[in-house]
Nucleic acid binder design. Structure first.
Length: 762
DNA sequence: CTACCTCGCTTTTTT
DNA sequence: AGCGAGGTAG
């Protein structure tokens, strides 16, 4: 190991980095420099003249992979780092599957179905079998299929699994296995794999073609896995098989931070590592560099109550720091107020930026109240997580064209665009096409190309179908000679999508238009980066798609978001750190005791979740719970989560001693009568997921949001709940347009314009 | 296709 | 409460 590397590491970290051979488990406590160790270990391998292409490093998110590549690059040089096999499980094995696709009966250009595609396919299967969709909801089906796949149960194997069949029988859903069979079959016909297939098929490939497994075993002399506690069975087995020859496997993780059991993660993978590899070495990174002693000690007090864990002692030699604050409040509204107040005060007193703060909650629902409180205090915030650029409708539409061009058998993509923009191919025609396709084992595309032979479709429709075919064919021809950007640009222009959006000229259409241009620019940029990194002269459309299919949110942080308080679920906070963290809603039923009935909850996992939340904080940690909270429209009495009782007074300022400071009893939120928090049209989950269309009001009536550009001060408007009122002013707040409206019924309100459900009255 | 209404549901989420 | 799926009337 070079001296410069050693300088940056503590003793145990150094040993872990210096140990290159053999199975190695690095138990990395929260904030213990896990990424640093992994980074330097890989750098060290490269220093020892191990060729970069012999190193396989697997992560869970693109972000983690990107960051690590960057950091390794800054140690050993970016060109060398670029040759590493580093990426998410899904992206690495998609790459391998494309290379070996012929063994599995797939083409190398197979499509990757996202969750929407998978659900849509399942919906059409349920329909084709003539079953009711309330008996077979596609989400539930997909969950079953997904978890079967994660356990390497193929459709045919499913029938032989007693527990599955009995479960389906008991649920009166005996056809489930048939759906799985058809789903599998149709994916294959469409030359498509879903996310879980990428792992399942890799396993099948390695199982059925030992010589291929051997090839990759020989190639990857060193295998490293990040966040090992989050691997599922399929991932575990791939890793195990790949490293079976050289046994140079390094896994890094923290059992105390395993919070993804609900999607198949097996904490046992990390707990049993020592049994899987009796000759293993283990390193425990126990020094936390992130947090104050009080925070680390308080978090330890929680996690020590778990039975299932690897013994370790996380400690900090940082300052003692302030006591962890636990705040008890009356209502959820008051909690919002207290948190917002606390952020404002801490920011001034400790000279912090807004971006040093995070508010963490268990469920997305809980963001609403926090948002409202922050806006009232003019504190800028951003909501993290949820949905990405690539999930926007206009982007998915354009991407569907790309998909059809690279793989016309991709039925889900064909269905998406066959009548977009509208070209007179209606639902009835599509249903007929699908029926013919099902009956003849052809793809919808193939049926379209042979439209002339169809019987019960009239000549007009036939020529429209053939028009569609020749349009796509022209794109395919284009894609054979030009690069991704040129083809994409050609498609955007020649389908009329851009033109249509341009002419529509509503704010929504303008933004969609911009997004499409942004996507096109993104392709250009990506081509430039690739050309540099991999000396690839032309970025083809299929190469581009491959990259985009496994992409999600997070990467596209906007610059206007730089100094804002971050709001997110605890799950999405994993791996992040903030100077000041507020954990809100730490109540009985959210951080549950025995109260959960509908969902069986794993108490230990909930505790780990709380632990993850606490260890995000560097200097200041505030935990709050409300004694009363609105839930499902009802005001519920609640109380502190049992985890609050596990906190130790030595490190924590518990609420018994807490006074409400300078707040006056007569302030509205202290009234015993709950303040009903009739949401002022703020962002909520569905808006964040990008569905900004007509919305359903309390009475269920569709209520169109007025385009912001049409609203002006002085205008009379109607709100779905507040009734009629007058706009006093429109102003800018935290980068958002905010209308101040005086409502006759309920007085003055501030509404976030991009979400406000306002109707013009004139 | 839109407007309106009724009803049922309500943890976490990456790829 | 807040949302969305889905039905019905026009």
């Amino acid at each position: 190991m070079s001296q410069s590397i050693a300088d940056h590491l503590n003793h145990i970290q150094q040993e872990a980095v210096a140990t290159l051979k053999g199975p190695t488990l690095i138990v990395a406590g929260a904030g213990s420099g896990k990424t640093r160790v992994l980074t330097y270990k890989i750098a060290n391998l490269l220093y020892q003249s191990i060729p970069a292409y012999q190193i396989l490093a697997l992560t869970f998110t693109n972000k983690a992979a990107g960051e690590m590549k960057q950091r390794i690059g800054s140690v050993v040089g970016q060109d060398k780092a670029a040759q590493l096999w580093m990426g998410t499980f899904h992206s690495i094995f998609a790459k391998i599957l494309r290379f070996e696709s012929q063994h599995l009966g797939y083409s190398s250009r197979f499509t990757i179905y996202d969750t929407d595609d998978a659900k849509s396919l399942l919906r059409s299967i349920v329909k084709q079998l003539g079953l009711k969709k309330d008996q077979y909801p596609e989400g539930e089906l997909l969950n079953k299929i997904s978890s079967a796949k994660n356990n390497l149960i193929t459709a045919n194997a499913y029938m032989g699994i007693d527990s599955y069949m009995k479960r389906d029988e008991a649920q009166r859903k005996p056809e489930t296995f048939r759906m799985y069979q058809m789903y599998e079959q149709k994916c294959k016909q469409a030359d498509a794999m879903d996310f879980d297939d990428l792992l399942l098929k890799t396993n099948l490939l390695f199982r059925d073609f030992p010589e291929i497994l051997q090839k990759y075993q020989e190639r990857f002399r060193f295998v490293l896995v990040d966040e090992y506690q989050d691997t599922n069975y399929a991932q575990y087995l791939i890793v195990k098989k790949l490293s079976a020859l050289h046994k140079n496997i390094t896994v890094v993780g923290d059992d105390a931070q395993s919070i993804y059991a609900f999607r198949g993660a097996k904490i046992e993978n990390i707990l049993n590592f020592k049994n899987d590899y009796p000759e293993h070495k283990i390193f425990k990174l126990e020094q936390n560099y992130r947090s104050t002693q009080n925070i680390v000690n308080a978090a330890n007090a929680i996690i020590k109550n778990n039975q299932k864990q690897i013994e370790k002692n996380l400690f900090s030699t940082n300052d003692l720091g302030e006591l962890v604050q636990v705040k008890k409040v009356n209502t959820d509204t008051e909690e919002g107020f207290v948190v917002a107040q606390n952020i404002a005060e801490q920011r001034m007193a400790k000279q912090l930026n807004y971006s040093d703060f995070a508010i963490l909650y268990r469920t997305n629902m809980q963001s609403r109240i926090m948002e409202e409180a922050l806006r009232k205090k003019n504190i800028p915030y951003k909501i993290y997580g949820g949905f990405s650029f690539y999930q926007r409708k206009e982007i998915k539409d354009l991407l569907a064209y790309f998909r059809v061009v690279t793989n016309p058998k991709d039925n889900e993509a064909v269905k998406r665009i066959i009548n977009y923009p509208a070209r007179g191919i209606g639902k009835t025609t599509i249903d007929k096409l699908e029926a013919v396709a099902n009956a003849s084992q052809m793809s919808i595309w193939e049926v379209c190309t042979r439209a002339q032979e169809l019987n019960d479709i009239n000549q007009g429709t036939k020529s429209k179908l053939l028009g569609f075919v020749s349009l796509i064919t022209s794109f395919i021809e284009k894609s054979e000679e030009e690069d991704a950007y040129q083809v994409a640009n050609y498609i955007a222009n020649n389908t009329g999508i851009l033109k249509q959006l341009h002419e529509e000229n509503t704010p929504e259409a303008v933004s969609q238009h911009e997004n499409i241009l942004e996507l096109l620019n993104g392709i250009k940029d990506y081509a430039a980066i690739l050309a540099k990194e991999e000396e690839l002269e032309v970025l083809t459309l299929d190469r581009y798609l491959e990259n985009i299919a496994l992409m999600t949110s997070q990467d596209n942080e906007k610059e206007e978001d730089f100094d804002k308080v971050t709001l997110m679920t605890i799950h999405s906070a994993k791996g992040l750190e903030y100077k000041s963290v507020h954990i809100v809603g730490v109540e009985q039923d959210l951080f549950p005791s025995m109260m959960a009935k509908n969902h069986p909850l794993d108490l230990e996992e909930e505790r780990r979740l709380f632990y993850v939340a606490m260890t995000r904080a560097e200097h200041y940690l505030t935990i709050s719970y409300a004694m009363n909270r609105m839930k499902y429209g009802q005001f519920n009495n609640t109380g502190p989560s049992m985890f609050i009782h596990e906190l130790n007074e030595e490190f924590v300022n518990l609420p018994e001693q807490q006074s409400f400071g300078k707040f006056q009893k007569n302030q509205s939120f202290f009234n015993s009568k709950p303040q009903f928090n009739s949401g002022s049209g703020l962002s909520n989950t569905s808006f964040r997921r990008g569905k900004l269309k007509s919305v359903s009001t309390a009475s269920g009536t569709d209520f169109k949001a007025s385009p912001a550009s049409e609203l002006k001060a002085g205008m009379r408007v109607e709100h779905e709940r507040f009734g009629q009122g007058k706009i006093l002013q429109i102003s800018q707040n935290a980068g958002n347009l905010v209308a101040t409206v005086f409502f006759e019924g309920s007085g003055q309100k501030q509404l976030l314009l991009k979400f406000a459900k306002l109707k013009r009255l004139d």
